[in-house]
Simulated scan of single mutants.
Amino acid sequence: MIQITSPAMEPAVSLSDARTAARANGSELDSELSIMVATLTAEAEHNTGRVIIKRTYRITLDEFPAYIEMPAWPVAEVIEVNYVGADGSPATLPSGTYRLDYSKNPIRLVLVPGATWPETSGIDAVKVDVICGHGADESATPPAFKGYVLAKIREAYTPGAVESPFVSGLLNSLRVY
């Protein structure tokens, strides 16, 4: 699996909110705060198994398995499923032949009842493009993510601050198990 498009808008928390959390009065910390927001967002995504801002992934397989595990949670859309058929010609699997199974973790792409996976030919014969993420911009960021990022920034810019167990617990409700 590879990420084929980056988020259209990066951060999960605005620079203005980061400035407030750092108690910065001007833009002198903007570069540092931008890096912190990106780093803390990546940390929060890793710790929860979620993707905040939408991005596109490509899953590449040699053949169709019983099901295809999605790369991240939440899955916004399966763009398309392409494959190289047994005769060597490229094809696209009709969207009505598969669905997302949200009852498992990770989310899986499965066949609808009565459908079968086509025969494939060659290495990397199956390519699934999928969009994962909560939304297109900061407005889609769950409050617990924002709270986590902003609290970590506040701790970093508060002299003598000790990491609060409350802060690390903010992500517990968002973890994908």
Rank of each mutant, 00 (worst) to 15 (best):
T116I: 12
L40N: 09
D101T: 03
S89T: 13
S89W: 09
R175N: 02
Y83A: 01
N105Q: 10
L33R: 03
P118I: 07
F166W: 12
N105Y: 12
A151M: 02
P106G: 05
V162Y: 09
R108M: 11
T141H: 05
A12D: 07
G160W: 11
A161W: 12
K127E: 12
Y98L: 08
L40Y: 15
I59R: 05
A24Q: 11
A66Y: 05
E28H: 14
S16L: 14
T5K: 08
A136M: 10
S27C: 07
T120G: 03
S27A: 12
L100Q: 09
Y102V: 07
E155T: 15
E119I: 08
D87Y: 08
A12I: 00
T116F: 11
S121M: 12
Y177K: 13
L150K: 04
T92G: 01
T56F: 07
R50P: 02
T20W: 06
V81G: 02
A91I: 01
L33H: 09
V130W: 10
S168H: 11
L109P: 00
A115H: 02
Y98I: 06
A72I: 01
D17L: 06
V51H: 06
A156Q: 15
T116V: 13
A8P: 03
E69Y: 04
I123P: 04
N25A: 14
N105I: 09
G135N: 01
A125M: 09
H46F: 12
